[in-house]
């Protein structure tokens, strides 16, 4: 499964407002909730917060990947945003976050979920790629950046 297959214009924002970690997570959950795969928004949020408790998903370099598994979705659902301002996300390198990728998978589909997680966290570890995302001005542009980058590094 490709990252571009799970993103679309409805779930991508380039100027997400919010100034705290909880506000940003809420806004990301709202974005994801627009998708038909989501059966229950509240339980989706719970799954995200539950996972965040185990270890912050602010993996460093200004990027965070809040994620979780729940049966409140029928299939993998994702959202991506560039925040309007730097967010204190309790990241492991203590740097503020501006790039947020939300990924929620079904309880019983662990394989695709962790595969996507590692694909995303590998791409996001490239400074040049992060820079292009931060400079994107529209969801369409973000999707195009993802498409190009993913095609360069992965075959399918």
């Amino acid at each position: 499964m490709r990252i571009v297959d799970i993103l679309n214009e409805q779930v991508v924002r380039t100027n997400l407002s919010g100034s705290t970690k909880p506000e940003i997570i809420d806004a990301m959950v709202e974005l994801a909730a627009s998708q038909p795969q989501v059966l229950d928004k509240e339980r989706l949020r719970e799954a995200i917060l539950e996972r965040e408790k185990i270890m912050s998903t602010g993996v460093g370099s200004g990027f965070a990947v809040p994620h979780g598994k729940t049966d409140a979705v029928t299939d993998i659902v994702a959202a991506f945003a560039v925040t309007a301002q730097p967010i204190d996300y309790q990241s492991l390198d203590e740097q503020p976050v501006r790039l947020v990728f939300l990924l929620v998978g079904r309880d019983n589909m662990v394989g695709p979920h962790i595969k996507l997680l590692s694909r995303i966290s590998r791409l996001m570890n490239k400074e040049e790629f992060r820079k292009r995302l931060l400079e994107a001005t529209s969801p369409q542009e973000v999707l195009e950046v993802f498409r190009q980058e993913e095609a360069t590094h992965f075959e399918v």
Binding site: M55, T57, V59, S61, V65, D93, L117, S121
Partner: peptide
């Protein structure tokens, strides 16, 4: 059993 991501600069 939990999933974790190895942070950048870890």
């Amino acid at each position: 059993l939990i999933d974790l991501i190895i942070p950048y600069h870890s």
